[in-house]
Amino acid sequence: MALVERDIQLDEHKRLKHLLTLEGLKAHHLTEILDLAETFFDANGELRKVPLLRGKTIMNVFFEPSTRTRTTFEIAEKRLSADVVNLNIATSATKKGESLQDTLWNLQAMGADMFVIRHADSGAAHFFARQVAEGVHVLNAGDGRHAHPSQALLDMFTIRKHKGDIYDLKVAIVGDILHSRVARSQIQALSILGAREIRVIGPRTLMPSCPEALGVHVYHDMDAGLEDVDVVIMLRLQNERMSGARLPSEKEFFRLYGLTEQRLERAKPDAIVMHPGPINRGVEIDSAVADGPRSVILDQVTNGIAVRMAIMAVIFSNAARHPQEDAS
């Protein structure tokens, strides 16, 4: 029954209304955003300011601490001339009294047109999208282990910029797949855009129980997994993975799965190295690689602003197109 329900992130014309996850989206949904993001750079590669969202109020509601994602969203919103409100809501504060629902409804009553939400629970973005009023949009900035679609889109943008097309590429994602919302969204983006092969590399303790359900090839051996790939995406290893008996030590993890210049030689000569940040030097990636010529890590950050601008611009323009189409 639940499966036949209309995808809540799409409107009746199957256009993006919220962005909660990439699962269920078509290639054109993604390329529309990526193509638009390109137009935000001027001839010198500088980001332009485009007043597309003048008069719109966007609230960045972060239930989980974040510096970089929130900052890039804020910059993106300001480049679009939106009015920006930042709220860092510690989980303890909501537990004290007000329910999540009430928090959201109150913010909505203050005139939000879009919520950019980060929350520690998988499915939180879906929850908020079900609660908001018609005409208010939800953009998932990371929910639990579930999804981080804007990160995956900026990664696709970066890959496209350096490699031309996603199609026909072999991509390896290395590290803690199990707990990573970034990895889940990247895998979905890559398969929607037709990547030739998606590999995940790491020990079984950091893999979901059914990786085949994600459509990936699993490698426990880093050298074999990197063989002949075009793109290497390293994931951040959270410190708490040591205490949960999932790994013996950071040292052993780095020895087995850390990306070094030597390991990178297995990949194609023109392979690029990516990381959603913040990086743990010497834990998942060697400084020589992170700062080396094949690293596009800082480029990802810049692209993140353009891609987030594009996501918001697409959602608001879809909403604006509505009445005219209904009339015709």
Binding site: E23, S122, G123, G144, R145, H146, A147, R181, R184, P208, S209, C210, P211, E212, A213, L214
Partner: peptide, 11 residues
């Protein structure tokens, strides 16, 4: 299982 793997729900 497969669904928790896809949705990132603790299993």
């Amino acid at each position: 299982g497969a669904v928790a793997s896809r949705l990132g729900l603790p299993g």
